[in-house]
């Protein structure tokens, strides 16, 4: 009895000590997490978005004014629509092109060529967005850009890529695909390589044709990766900032202005910190809701059985 009690006592004592040492190990992570991740989120959502703050004079509580102001602002609709356009264009393109490229590369027999293709497709993903975006503004130039030169050679008219309201989002989307498709491509490539050959062999024996095996085996087996790519590209597209900032600065007019760009302009150009926080909160809520919906839908189609 006494022995047992001692043991228990020792255990709880140990537990307290364990807890202390665990928190000591965690302290750098917790401090930075609170200061730069959790704290800011809480501050934005619970406080800043209800205030007026221009960083020079003290904050002033204004209730829901910022949200009303955002609702009244005539350009808000355009900005949200633009962001939606990026999502609608970029998510399917990344998901599908990335998959096709990964399948194409996985078909390559020669190890060297495989390496070459993989490098060519993935390399833009590791280079600095800012520096290649600069180069692309020149490639896109209407009068002496390389892209229009080729279009002209093919008999097409020059396209005013970055200087027309019609083409600004397509131009940014093409750049974005070029720059970032390598990431989903790599995820898929790894996923495909992890599919055991035996699945395909079994399917062949069952007399399945190529298309059937693709939709019955490859897609279901890759579904966790596809889900991951959809979720991450969706969050990325909702927050798209660098590409429009560097290529068009949101223009011409408001044609390529996004929510993220708008937040940046309000927060760090006109110093309406409260107003910008309110927009950030709305963006946060949209992303959170849509991501949760995706997670709840995933049960219907994502297949984790083979892992």
């Amino acid at each position: 009895m006494t022995n047992n009690k001692n043991l228990k006592l020792k255990y709880t004592k140990n537990n307290v000590k364990d807890t202390i040492s665990a928190y000591l190990f965690l302290s750098p992570a917790i401090i930075t997490f609170v200061l730069f991740v959790a704290g800011p989120v809480v501050l934005t959502v619970c406080y800043l978005c209800f205030t007026k703050y221009n960083i020079i004079t003290p904050t002033e509580f204004v209730g829901l004014d910022n949200f009303i102001k955002l609702f009244d602002y005539p350009v808000t609709g355009t900005i949200f629509k633009n962001t939606l356009k990026y999502v609608v264009v970029l998510v399917p393109l990344h998901v599908i092109i990335g998959l096709l490229l990964a399948i194409g590369v996985s078909k390559e027999v020669s190890g060297r060529l495989k390496y070459f293709f993989r490098t060519a497709i993935y390399f833009p993903s590791v280079v600095t967005t800012a520096s290649v975006a600069i180069a692309w503004t020149y490639l896109y130039n209407k009068d002496f850009g390389v892209i229009n030169y080729f279009l002209n050679r093919l008999g097409a008219d020059s396209i005013p890529w970055l200087i027309s309201t019609k083409w600004s989002i397509p131009a940014i989307a093409i750049f974005s695909i070029w720059k970032f498709v390598g990431t989903p491509f790599l995820y898929y490539l790894i996923g495909i390589q992890n599919i055991p050959d035996s699945f395909y062999e079994a399917a062949t024996i069952d007399g399945a044709n190529k298309l059937q095996t693709f939709f019955k085996i490859t897609i279901p087996l890759l579904s966790p990766t596809i889900f991951f790519v959809i979720t991450t590209t969706f969050i990325g597209a909702m927050q798209i900032f660098e590409e429009p900032f560097l290529l068009t600065n949101g223009g011409p007019g408001d044609s390529s202005r996004t929510i993220a760009l708008f937040i940046y302009e309000k927060a760090f150009k006109s110093y309406q910190m409260g107003y910008a926080s309110a927009i950030a909160v709305i963006l946060f809520i949209i992303i959170l809701l849509l991501t949760l919906i995706q997670f709840s839908l995933q049960k219907k189609w994502v297949n984790y059985d083979y892992e």
Binding site: P40, V41, Q239, A260, V281
Partner: peptide, 14 residues
Amino acid sequence: MIPYQSTIIPKFLF
């Protein structure tokens, strides 16, 4: 999962 834009303003203030 937290979008960058929702932390940047307080980060700036910190």
